[in-house]
Protein backbone atom coordinates (compact mmCIF):
# COMPACT_ATOMS: atom_id res chain seq x y z
CA UNK A 1 0.00 0.00 0.00
CA UNK A 2 1.34 3.41 -0.92
CA UNK A 3 0.16 6.62 0.51
CA UNK A 4 0.85 10.07 -0.81
CA UNK A 5 0.61 12.22 2.24
CA UNK A 6 -0.34 15.78 2.43
CA UNK A 7 2.93 17.13 3.74
CA UNK A 8 2.00 18.37 7.15
CA UNK A 9 3.69 18.21 10.48
CA UNK A 10 2.18 16.63 13.48
CA UNK A 11 -0.99 18.61 12.89
CA UNK A 12 -3.16 17.18 10.19
CA UNK A 13 -6.06 18.48 8.15
CA UNK A 14 -7.84 21.55 9.38
CA UNK A 15 -5.83 23.59 11.76
CA UNK A 16 -7.19 26.31 13.98
CA UNK A 17 -4.10 28.41 13.68
CA UNK A 18 -4.17 28.25 9.88
CA UNK A 19 -7.68 29.55 10.12
CA UNK A 20 -6.64 32.19 12.61
CA UNK A 21 -3.73 33.24 10.48
CA UNK A 22 -5.85 33.17 7.33
CA UNK A 23 -8.32 35.61 8.80
CA UNK A 24 -5.38 37.61 10.05
CA UNK A 25 -4.05 37.96 6.55
CA UNK A 26 -7.37 39.44 5.50
CA UNK A 27 -7.38 41.82 8.45
CA UNK A 28 -3.90 42.85 7.48
CA UNK A 29 -4.53 43.37 3.78
CA UNK A 30 -4.69 47.14 4.07
CA UNK A 31 -1.63 47.21 6.20
CA UNK A 32 0.28 45.18 3.65
CA UNK A 33 -0.77 47.45 0.81
CA UNK A 34 0.32 50.58 2.57
CA UNK A 35 3.11 49.20 4.74
CA UNK A 36 6.74 48.56 3.98
CA UNK A 37 6.09 45.11 2.71
CA UNK A 38 9.61 44.52 1.49
CA UNK A 39 11.27 45.95 4.56
CA UNK A 40 14.22 44.03 5.89
CA UNK A 41 15.46 45.23 9.19
CA UNK A 42 17.18 43.82 12.19
CA UNK A 43 15.61 44.06 15.59
CA UNK A 44 17.48 43.21 18.74
CA UNK A 45 16.71 39.56 18.24
CA UNK A 46 15.59 38.51 14.83
CA UNK A 47 15.71 39.28 11.15
CA UNK A 48 12.38 40.63 9.96
CA UNK A 49 10.76 38.50 7.28
CA UNK A 50 9.89 39.99 3.91
CA UNK A 51 6.15 40.17 4.40
CA UNK A 52 6.40 42.12 7.61
CA UNK A 53 4.31 45.16 8.35
CA UNK A 54 4.45 47.73 11.11
CA UNK A 55 2.29 46.70 14.03
CA UNK A 56 1.81 49.16 16.85
CA UNK A 57 1.08 47.67 20.23
CA UNK A 58 0.64 49.21 23.66
CA UNK A 59 2.12 46.77 26.11
CA UNK A 60 2.40 47.36 29.84
CA UNK A 61 1.84 51.07 29.22
CA UNK A 62 4.61 51.32 26.63
CA UNK A 63 4.13 51.88 22.90
CA UNK A 64 6.00 49.37 20.74
CA UNK A 65 6.23 49.27 16.96
CA UNK A 66 7.11 45.84 15.64
CA UNK A 67 7.80 44.68 12.11
CA UNK A 68 5.90 41.44 11.98
CA UNK A 69 4.19 39.25 9.50
CA UNK A 70 0.45 39.86 9.84
CA UNK A 71 -0.05 36.20 10.74
CA UNK A 72 2.03 36.55 13.91
CA UNK A 73 0.05 35.68 17.02
CA UNK A 74 0.11 38.01 20.00
CA UNK A 75 1.86 35.18 21.85
CA UNK A 76 4.73 34.97 19.37
CA UNK A 77 5.02 38.74 19.24
CA UNK A 78 5.31 39.02 23.01
CA UNK A 79 7.63 36.06 23.47
CA UNK A 80 9.87 36.04 20.44
CA UNK A 81 10.03 39.74 19.56
CA UNK A 82 9.68 41.54 22.89
CA UNK A 83 11.21 38.89 25.13
CA UNK A 84 8.14 39.02 27.39
CA UNK A 85 8.32 35.30 28.10
CA UNK A 86 6.13 35.27 31.19
CA UNK A 87 3.32 34.11 28.93
CA UNK A 88 4.25 30.55 27.99
CA UNK A 89 3.62 28.62 24.82
CA UNK A 90 2.17 25.29 25.96
CA UNK A 91 -0.82 24.07 23.94
CA UNK A 92 -0.90 26.82 21.31
CA UNK A 93 -4.54 25.86 20.71
CA UNK A 94 -6.39 27.93 23.36
CA UNK A 95 -6.90 25.10 25.85
CA UNK A 96 -4.46 25.55 28.70
CA UNK A 97 -4.20 29.22 29.68
CA UNK A 98 -0.41 29.29 30.09
CA UNK A 99 -0.27 32.31 27.77
CA UNK A 100 -2.97 34.32 29.56
CA UNK A 101 -2.56 38.11 29.27
CA UNK A 102 -4.92 41.01 29.82
CA UNK A 103 -6.29 42.81 26.78
CA UNK A 104 -8.42 45.83 27.67
CA UNK A 105 -8.72 44.42 31.18
CA UNK A 106 -10.01 41.02 30.09
CA UNK A 107 -8.10 37.77 30.40
CA UNK A 108 -7.19 36.46 26.97
CA UNK A 109 -5.16 33.54 25.66
CA UNK A 110 -2.38 35.27 23.73
CA UNK A 111 -2.28 32.30 21.33
CA UNK A 112 -5.89 33.00 20.34
CA UNK A 113 -5.38 36.37 18.67
CA UNK A 114 -3.07 37.90 16.12
CA UNK A 115 -0.84 40.71 17.24
CA UNK A 116 -2.31 42.93 14.53
CA UNK A 117 -5.79 42.49 15.99
CA UNK A 118 -4.54 44.03 19.23
CA UNK A 119 -3.56 47.39 17.77
CA UNK A 120 -5.15 50.16 19.76
CA UNK A 121 -5.78 47.93 22.76
CA UNK A 122 -4.19 47.95 26.19
CA UNK A 123 -2.14 44.78 26.61
CA UNK A 124 -0.88 43.84 30.05
CA UNK A 125 1.39 40.89 30.71
CA UNK A 126 2.49 39.25 33.95
CA UNK A 127 5.67 41.29 33.86
CA UNK A 128 3.56 44.37 34.70
CA UNK A 129 2.70 42.84 38.07
CA UNK A 130 6.24 43.25 39.35
CA UNK A 131 8.49 46.25 39.61
CA UNK A 132 11.80 45.31 41.19
CA UNK A 133 11.09 44.07 44.69
CA UNK A 134 7.53 45.35 44.57
CA UNK A 135 5.18 42.60 43.51
CA UNK A 136 1.44 42.32 43.13
CA UNK A 137 -0.34 40.61 46.03
CA UNK A 138 -1.28 37.74 43.71
CA UNK A 139 2.40 37.00 43.07
CA UNK A 140 3.30 37.17 46.77
CA UNK A 141 0.21 35.07 47.53
CA UNK A 142 1.29 32.41 45.06
CA UNK A 143 4.69 32.30 46.75
CA UNK A 144 3.20 32.19 50.25
CA UNK A 145 0.84 29.33 49.38
CA UNK A 146 3.47 27.57 47.25
CA UNK A 147 1.04 27.66 44.35
CA UNK A 148 3.71 26.47 41.95
CA UNK A 149 6.06 23.62 41.29
CA UNK A 150 7.79 23.61 37.91
CA UNK A 151 6.31 27.07 37.46
CA UNK A 152 5.51 26.81 33.77
CA UNK A 153 1.76 27.37 34.13
CA UNK A 154 2.21 29.81 37.01
CA UNK A 155 2.42 33.21 35.26
CA UNK A 156 -0.71 32.35 33.25
CA UNK A 157 -2.51 31.47 36.48
CA UNK A 158 -1.26 34.67 38.10
CA UNK A 159 -2.72 36.82 35.31
CA UNK A 160 -5.97 34.84 35.32
CA UNK A 161 -6.23 35.21 39.12
CA UNK A 162 -5.45 38.94 39.03
CA UNK A 163 -8.07 39.47 36.32
CA UNK A 164 -10.68 37.42 38.16
CA UNK A 165 -10.13 39.32 41.40
CA UNK A 166 -10.15 42.68 39.61
CA UNK A 167 -13.54 41.81 38.22
CA UNK A 168 -14.86 40.03 41.29
CA UNK A 169 -12.91 41.07 44.41
CA UNK A 170 -15.12 38.94 46.65
CA UNK A 171 -15.03 35.77 44.58
CA UNK A 172 -16.23 32.61 46.30
CA UNK A 173 -14.49 29.27 45.91
CA UNK A 174 -17.05 28.28 43.29
CA UNK A 175 -16.42 31.48 41.36
CA UNK A 176 -12.67 30.93 41.64
CA UNK A 177 -13.04 27.39 40.29
CA UNK A 178 -15.03 28.72 37.36
CA UNK A 179 -12.83 31.76 36.80
CA UNK A 180 -9.60 29.80 36.79
CA UNK A 181 -11.04 26.75 35.03
CA UNK A 182 -9.46 27.87 31.77
CA UNK A 183 -5.95 27.16 33.01
CA UNK A 184 -4.20 23.81 33.36
CA UNK A 185 -1.42 22.83 35.77
CA UNK A 186 0.34 19.48 35.36
CA UNK A 187 2.33 19.37 38.60
CA UNK A 188 -0.85 19.70 40.68
CA UNK A 189 -0.72 23.12 42.34
CA UNK A 190 -4.45 23.87 42.29
CA UNK A 191 -4.84 23.68 46.07
CA UNK A 192 -2.32 26.48 46.66
CA UNK A 193 -3.77 28.58 43.85
CA UNK A 194 -7.26 28.31 45.31
CA UNK A 195 -5.95 29.10 48.81
CA UNK A 196 -4.19 32.20 47.49
CA UNK A 197 -7.25 33.44 45.61
CA UNK A 198 -9.51 32.73 48.59
CA UNK A 199 -7.21 34.62 50.94
CA UNK A 200 -7.14 37.71 48.75
CA UNK A 201 -10.89 37.62 48.14
CA UNK A 202 -11.43 36.80 51.82
CA UNK A 203 -13.36 33.77 50.65
CA UNK A 204 -16.16 35.85 49.21
CA UNK A 205 -16.81 37.53 52.56
Amino acid sequence: MRDQDHPVGSHSGFNRRDFLKGSGAAVAATAIATGEAEAQAKTKANVVPARAVDIKLKINGKNETLKLEPRTTLLDALRNWLNLTGCKEVCDTTNCGACTVQVNGKALYACSVLAIECEGKEIKTVEALRSGDKVDEVISGFVKHDAMQCGFCTPGFVVATRTLLDKNPKATRKEIDAGLGGNICRCGTYDGIAACAMEISKGGA
Partner: peptide, 11 residues
Protein backbone atom coordinates in the same frame (compact mmCIF):
# COMPACT_ATOMS: atom_id res chain seq x y z
CA UNK B 1 9.00 31.75 43.82
CA UNK B 2 8.77 35.38 42.75
CA UNK B 3 10.95 34.68 39.73
CA UNK B 4 8.61 31.92 38.62
CA UNK B 5 5.32 33.61 39.42
CA UNK B 6 6.28 36.91 37.81
CA UNK B 7 7.45 35.31 34.58
CA UNK B 8 11.06 36.36 35.11
CA UNK B 9 12.36 32.78 35.32
CA UNK B 10 13.78 31.81 31.94
CA UNK B 11 13.15 28.27 30.76
Amino acid sequence: GVEKASGAAKY
